[in-house]
Design a protein around this nucleic acid. Sequence first.
DNA 1: GTCTATATCCAGATAGAC
DNA 2: GTCTATCTGGATATAGAC
Lengths: 197, 197
Amino acid sequence: MPYLKRLAPEPEPIDCKILTAALNLFVEKGYHSVSIHEVQKISDVSIGSIYKHFGGKEGIAKQLYKHVLNELDELIDGVTTSVEDPVVQLEEIIKQLFEHTETHEYIISFLFYTKHTDFLPDEPLMNNSRPFLKIKEITSNAIEAKNINNTNINVASSIILGSAIRMIQLRIDGLIDDPLINHLDTLMNNIWNGLKA
Amino acid sequence: MPYLKRLAPEPEPIDCKILTAALNLFVEKGYHSVSIHEVQKISDVSIGSIYKHFGGKEGIAKQLYKHVLNELDELIDGVTTSVEDPVVQLEEIIKQLFEHTETHEYIISFLFYTKHTDFLPDEPLMNNSRPFLKIKEITSNAIEAKNINNTNINVASSIILGSAIRMIQLRIDGLIDDPLINHLDTLMNNIWNGLKA
DNA sequence: GTCTATATCCAGATAGAC
DNA sequence: GTCTATCTGGATATAGAC
C-alpha cells in the first residue's frame, strides 16, 4: 500500500499551503461561500502570489480537483499492482477509502461529497475520470472472470461503488457513528453474496 | 399511485412560476451561479414580487427544498398505503424514482444530485428528513420481518438506496444510455439476492 | 517573486411609484 | 400587490511598490 505509506509521515495531506487551505475552506463552507481573501488569510500567502500561481479561485479549484483525482488514481494503482483477483481489488479499494474517510476526511469529502460541476463546469465529469473508469474496468474484469454474475456492468458497479459512497456520505454527515471499516465485511459479504449468484 | 396521477395532467411539475424557474436554473447552473434577475426573467415575475413572496434567493431555495422533499414524502406514502410487504415497498419506491428520472428529471436531479448544504446550511440534512427516515424505517421493517438478512441497518439501506441513487446520477450524467427502468429487475434481484441470504 | 492598496463589477436587496 | 430604478456591499482581479 504505497499510498498510505507515502502519506503517513506527513502532517498535511497536500504539500501546498494554498491548496490545503482551499480544500479545508471549500469542504467546510462550499466553494462559492469562500472568498479568495479567506484563502489568503488561512494559507498566509498573499493575494498576489495566489494569482501568480493559480490565476484565481477557479484555478485553485481546478488544481485541487486534479490533485485529489490523482491521489485516488494512485491508490487504485497501488491496489491493482499488489493484488491479482479483481474482486479482492475492489474490496481493497473500498477498504482504503473507508480508512481515508477517518484519516483524510476533507479529501474524501471533496472527492465523494462535492458537486464539482457547480464550480468547474468545464472539467470532465468525475464519473468519467481516469480513476473512476479504472474502477469500472476492474468491475468489468471481475464479471468476465466469472467471479461475478454476468450482470449489467452499470448495475454491478452502481451496487458496489454506490453503496460504498453512500456509507461514506452518511459517515461524513455523522449519521453513522462508528468508523466504516467496522462495516466493511458486512457490506462486502452482502454485495458479493448478491452478485456472485 | 396518487403521486403520478396527480401530476400527470399538469404541464409543469410545480404549480408556481417562480419555483419552476428556480428549479430549472438551479439544476442547470447551480444555485450560486443563478442570479435573482435570471429567475425574474425566466419566471416573468418582477423582482419586487419575488421578494414579497419569498424574501430573496435563499427563501426560494428553502421553499423549493421543502416542496421536493414533500413530493418525495407523498410518493412514499402512496406506496406504503398501497402495498404491504416492506420489500415490495422499497422496490416500488425505487421503481417510481427511476420513472421520475425520465419524466421529472429536474426534480430528481435537485433531490439526488445537489449539495443542498452549499446554499441551505441551516436546513436539516436531507438524509435526516422525513422521507429519508421513512425509507430507513421501511428497510428496518424488512429486516425485522426476516425478509432481509439481519444485517446492520445502515449497511442494508446504503446498499439499497446507494445503488439506486448512483444509477440515477449516472443516468443524469448521461453515462447510462437507456432508461433506468430497464435495469430495475437486475438491480433489485442482485440486491435482494445478497441481502436475503 | 511577493505583497498591499485599489479599481471594477455585479449580485442581493430596497425604496417608493403606480 | 406589482413593478422599476437605485443603492450598497463584497468579491474578483489588477496595478504597481518593494
